[in-house]
């Protein structure tokens, strides 16, 4: 059920974020762009949606390159496994799958480094940094309100320009833009509770709003588990790559993973590629 657009041989799957849109516009007719549904915020009427937790709506052997940007962490382990298998089906021989996820290992190291600093020098701003790093590391696993404690922390203006850039790169825009976003509620609103209760009636099970919207993170990936996920699905030539390197021909042209304003990644991630 592919759309009428010209077949490009490249598929870009993305999940969220307002700023990434500016980059996607540049992909123009060189990539087919689809968005991972169900969406969690900033959805526009023109986005083409797919559900990455289900078989992908494309014929096999159709693409030479697939980039799943920040998708896998929103899938349960078995769904992620099936998704990578689906990607393998869509790729022609020697096609490249590129996947990026939050780099949990670095987030854990950053958090522990902040803890060490706070132990030797327990000043308020250093302890504040421990809170921020703990939320960046873990909040997306535990939040029950869209945005969670992390978004509240950011909007409250307690993170410096530097620590925002370190955690999110350019993905949240400038600090001023990030701080001006709407403050998420601390507790689930009635509206959310009603939606959750409705879901119990319809699907006979409770699913938290943050899980239903696929906002929550459902698994940890790192240098060990992400290459293994691709290996299990039959990919070869698997390697961890940087934001500006890829086996996809012409990668530098699209600058998808690098910042347009400096020598840092667009959003700090762990990126892995494999060959079908």
């Amino acid at each position: 059920m592919s759309s009428g657009a010209a077949e490009t041989g490249r598929l870009f799957i993305w999940a969220a974020g307002a700023v990434i849109r500016t980059k996607i516009e540049r992909l123009d007719r060189e990539w087919e762009v689809v968005r991972f549904a169900p969406p969690f915020h900033g959805v526009s009427g023109t986005d083409r949606m797919i559900d990455a937790a289900r078989p992908l709506p494309f014929a096999g052997n159709r693409f030479n390159a697939i980039y799943a940007r920040r998708i896998l962490e929103h899938l349960a382990p078995d769904e992620a496994h099936a998704f990578v298998k689906e990607a393998r089906r869509l790729l022609a021989a020697n096609g490249i799958l590129r996947v990026s996820v939050p780099d949990t290992e670095s987030l854990a190291r950053d958090y522990l480094a902040a803890v060490e600093r706070a132990r030797t020098d327990p000043q308020p701003h250093i302890i504040e940094d421990v809170h921020a790093k703990r939320l960046v590391y873990m909040d997306q696993f535990v939040r029950r309100v869209p945005g969670g404690a992390l978004a509240r922390h950011i909007v409250s203006g307690r993170m410096s320009e530097e620590s925002l850039r370190h955690a999110f790169g350019d993905a949240l825009g400038t600090r001023d833009e990030a701080v001006k976003s709407r403050m998420p509620p601390a507790a689930p609103a009635w509206r959310q509770r009603l939606k959750e209760a409705g879901r119990v009636l319809l699907r006979r099970r409770w699913v938290h709003e943050t899980h239903a919207r696929r906002e929550a993170h459902l698994w940890i990936y790192d240098r060990f588990s992400l290459p293994r996920l691709l290996l299990d699905a039959g990919f070869t030539d698997i390697r961890v790559v940087g934001p500006d390197t890829s086996a996809i021909a012409g990668w530098q042209r699209w600058t998808l993973d690098v910042s347009d304003s400096g020598a840092h990644p667009f959003e700090p991630s762990l990126i892995v590629e494999g060959r079908a």
């Binding site: 949990t104 290992e105 854990a108 958090y111 522990l112 703990r134 940890i220 790192d222 060990f224």
Partner: peptide, 12 residues
């Protein structure tokens, strides 16, 4: 969280 993070990094 701190203990779990250390445990995770060591196991990794």
């Amino acid at each position: 969280v701190e203990r779990d993070a250390r445990l995770y990094l060591a196991a990794l």
